[in-house]
């Protein structure tokens, strides 16, 4: 009885800590994709002076938040796994560009994007090792 009482709270605490870390990683992906979209909106609306457009500044804020959330998530999640999860952004960005900015994606480009995504996913573990050593 005593052991299970002692183990259970500890276990649930551990689970929630890793769940929190994955939520942060998910937030990173969302912030990064939304940030790119906002920078694109700012750069397209004011090609000569993108810094005068509100979207550019919100994009920058999202980038900074992404950086903070990324560092927080990495306290719990190994870099290799974080890189692998983050590779989904390679798909999120073009899909949101298609959905929200109405960009036309040819079949050739779609195939290329898919190939890059699989490549980044496969290279996540070895590039994380490289990142840790450098």
């Amino acid at each position: 009885m005593l052991t299970s009482d002692q183990t259970l709270p500890g276990l649930s605490l551990k689970l929630s800590a890793s769940t929190k870390a994955y939520l942060k990683l998910g937030a990173c992906a969302g912030l990064l994709a939304a940030g790119e979209l906002l920078l694109k909106i700012g750069a397209t609306a004011q090609p000569d002076s993108p810094m005068t457009h509100w979207a550019t500044w919100i994009g920058i804020a999202f980038y900074v938040l992404n950086f903070v959330a990324w560092l927080e998530a990495l306290k719990t999640i190994p870099v290799g796994i974080a890189f692998a999860v983050q590779s989904i952004v390679q798909l999120m960005v073009p899909i949101s560009a298609w959905l929200f900015l109405h960009e036309q994606i040819s079949s050739g480009r779609a195939l290329g994007i898919l190939s890059v995504f699989v490549g980044v996913f496969l290279a996540a573990a070895p590039s994380a090792v490289a990142d840790e050593r450098l």
Partner: peptide
Amino acid sequence: LSKYELSQLYAFEG
């Protein structure tokens, strides 16, 4: 970004 499509440029993040 002001000259090219995001879906094309972002792939280079790979």
